[in-house]
Design a protein around this nucleic acid. Structure first.
Length: 272
DNA sequence: AAGAGGTACAACCGCCTGGAA
DNA sequence: ATTCCAGGCGGTTGTACCTCT
């Protein structure tokens, strides 16, 4: 007996979400909060699987998402977290407010993995690739000095992966030098200090204060829904339709003056 | 200008887990 | 103790977009 599908496959729409569908989903979540995803499509008037709705919300529509490419500091944090946690993207994402597991996973697979390989670092073990190391030994290149010096894994201490990523431009146009190495380490340490707090939670089972006030201050200062200004290119009119929220009920919740209040509402709903 | 190949990322699939009955 | 189910997770796929030739 096979597992029962999460929803009736017949009549369930697949593929990219339309603006109309997004509107419906947002409207529903704002009105009812996040509960019982299986019921959401029906109640929200969507011909989608509940799972699909949850994914769309958590990965794309949530107001606290940052959007846009990960910056250097974030990339570095991902690498460090990955060194400790492996492919546990949700755990990694939990340490990076505003980022989703899917986003981090995609970024890892498309950017970071390649960069590490290019640097002769095994993206799985975070150690120098065997082949590369041997080659480097014989060629006496200084690049070998830039390979990660990951400490022995110790559950009580966060180890550091001491290398930094270099851009492909850097990689292709400049030869490694001592200065370059220093710069890389400096860059890493700069980024690391910001992330020290988060990293301190890495190896313990105690959860970090994942959603801290700063995360939501982001929402409060009006930047959380500006994804169109960053990279949310598919919604040319994203602000327009948000302003049109009154058409689908935001009015009813006294949220028509400011979407930041809506976001705060979501926080409250989520914390219930 | 057009086709081929590469890249980025949204979305889907199927398995796993934990809680409720 | 067992079964069922919703939600969560990680791997993979599909496709739009970009770059190169």
């Amino acid at each position: 007996m096979g597992r029962q599908p999460c929803c009736d496959k017949l009549g369930v729409k697949k593929g990219p979400w339309t603006v109309e569908e997004d509107k419906k989903l947002i409207s529903f979540i704002l009105s009812n909060g996040q509960c019982c995803w299986r019921a959401v499509p029906k109640l929200a008037g969507l011909h989608r699987c509940g799972k699909s709705c949850r994914l769309r919300w958590t990965n794309y529509l949530r107001p606290d998402l940052k959007r846009g490419l990960l910056n250097e500091s974030e990339e570095q944090l991902v690498i460090d977290l990955h060194a400790h946690l492996g492919n546990r993207w949700s755990k990694i994402a939990a340490r990076m407010p505003g980022r989703t597991d899917n986003e981090i996973k995609n970024h890892w697979n498309t950017h970071i993995k390649k960069k590490l390989l290019k640097m002769g670092i095994d993206p799985v073990t975070h150690k120098p690739l065997q082949k590369e190391t041997e080659v480097e030994k014989t060629s006496s290149s200084s690049v070998v000095n830039l390979l990660p010096q990951t400490e022995e894994y110790n559950p009580s201490l966060p180890s550091r992966t001491v290398y930094t990523l270099e851009s492909s431009e850097e990689n292709s146009s400049s030869k490694p030098s001592e200065n370059f190495q220093d710069h890389k380490i400096e860059t890493f340490l700069d980024g690391y200090s910001e992330d020290e707090k988060l990293l301190s939670y890495l190896l313990g089972e105690n959860e970090a204060p994942l959603v801290d006030t700063t995360t939501w201050e982001l929402a409060n200062n009006g930047t959380s829904f500006n994804r169109c200004a960053n990279s949310f290119v598919s919604w040319d009119d994203c602000t327009t339709w948000l302003l049109d929220c009154q058409d689908f009920g935001v009015h009813d919740f006294g949220l028509d003056s400011s979407f930041n209040d809506v976001e705060i509402n979501i926080i409250n709903m989520g914390s219930k």
